[in-house]
C-alpha cells in the first residue's frame, strides 16, 4: 500500500446554468510534484481551482485531501488544511502595503490574543516582530522586499503577481495553486518565474498545481501535465506523453503549432 496522493479529484463536476464548466474530472496530484493544468480558454481550469479551494461547491464528485473528502468546505477551512492559491485576475488588498498583504496571509500563524494586542504587551510585540520578519523573508524571496511599504495597487504588474505568491505562501501551504502566474510577462520574466517556482518547491517542500497558457514553459517546469478541454480532462501524463497525445494535439497544441 502506498500513501494516498496529496490531492485527488474523483469525477468532479460543476455547471453554471446550462453550461457544464467542469465535467467528470479526475486527477491525482502526488506530493512534491509540479503538475501543470493546460487547455484552451474556457476549458474550466479556473473553475477547477475554485472547486479545490472551496470558493465553488461541486455538484458531483469528490475532492480528497490526503485521502479525506474536503468537497464543500468553506475556503478558509480549505486554506488551513494547507491549500493556498493565487488568482488569475489578481485579488490583492489594493490600498494595504505589500507587508500588510503578506501579514494577512500570516493571520492563522498569529496566535496573540486580542487583549494582548490592544495593550501592546511585550509578548505581543515579540510575536509581531517575528511575523513581520517572516513576511519580510517571503518578500525578499520574491524580490519584493524593497517595496514592502508600498501599497499593493502601486506595484507593477509582474510584481503584483509575485506578491500574490508571497501572500499565498504566508499561509504555510503544502499545496500551492497558481492561476496563470506568468500572464502578461515577457519570455525572460517567464523563465525567471519558472526558476522561482522550482526554488520555492524545494525550499518549502511544496506541491504545485499550476495553470498556464505558455506550453513550452509548462513542458519545462512540470513533472506531470493534465489537459482540459470543454470541462473534460482529455489527457494526463508526463510532458512527453502529453505532447504526443493525438487528442491533445488536436484540441490544443495543434492550434498553437
Amino acid at each position: 500500500m502506498t500513501a494516498p496522493p496529496l490531492l485527488e479529484l474523483e469525477g468532479l463536476s460543476r455547471s453554471f446554468g446550462g453550461l457544464v464548466a467542469v465535467n467528470q474530472v479526475s486527477l491525482q496530484v502526488q506530493e512534491g510534484t509540479i503538475t501543470g493544468l493546460i487547455g484552451p480558454n474556457g476549458a474550466g481550469k479556473t473553475t477547477l481551482f475554485n472547486l479545490i479551494s472551496g470558493l465553488t461547491p461541486p455538484h458531483a464528485g469528490r475532492i480528497l485531501w490526503q485521502g479525506a473528502a474536503i468537497g464543500g468546505l468553506p475556503p478558509e477551512r480549505v486554506n488551513r488544511l494547507g491549500i493556498a492559491r493565487t488568482f488569475q485576475n489578481l485579488r490583492l488588498f489594493g490600498p494595504l502595503s505589500c507587508l500588510d498583504n503578506v501579514l494577512v496571509g500570516l493571520h492563522s500563524a498569529d496566535r496573540s490574543p486580542l487583549l494582548a494586542g490592544l495593550l501592546n504587551r511585550p509578548a505581543f510585540r515579540r510575536q509581531q516582530d517575528q511575523l513581520r520578519q517572516r513576511a519580510h523573508e517571503l518578500l525578499e524571496l520574491l524580490e519584493l522586499d524593497r517595496l514592502a511599504d508600498q501599497p499593493a495597487d502601486s506595484l507593477a504588474y509582474g510584481h503584483r503577481r509575485r506578491l500574490e505568491i508571497a501572500r499565498a505562501l504566508a499561509t504555510g501551504p503544502r499545496l500551492l495553486l497558481l492561476d496563470e502566474p506568468a500572464a502578461g510577462m515577457n519570455p525572460a520574466e517567464k523563465a525567471a518565474l519558472a526558476d522561482l517556482i522550482e526554488r520555492l518547491r524545494q525550499r518549502f517542500n511544496l506541491t504545485v498545481l499550476v495553470i498556464e497558457h505558455h506550453v513550452p514553459l509548462m513542458m519545462r517546469l512540470c513533472d506531470r501535465l493534465a489537459v482540459l478541454n470543454f470541462g473534460q480532462r482529455i489527457a494526463e501524463g508526463t510532458p512527453a506523453e502529453v505532447r504526443s497525445d493525438p487528442l491533445v494535439i488536436e484540441a490544443y497544441l495543434g492550434s498553437q503549432a
Binding site: 486554506n79 488588498f93 494595504l96 494577512v104 496571509g105 501572500r167 499565498a168
Partner: peptide
C-alpha cells in the same frame, strides 16, 4: 481591512 478590499481573497488566506 483586508475583508473590505476583497472578502473572497481574504477567506482564501485562511481568515474566518
Amino acid at each position: 481591512a483586508a475583508i473590505r478590499e476583497d472578502e473572497l481573497a481574504t477567506r482564501c488566506m485562511g481568515v474566518p
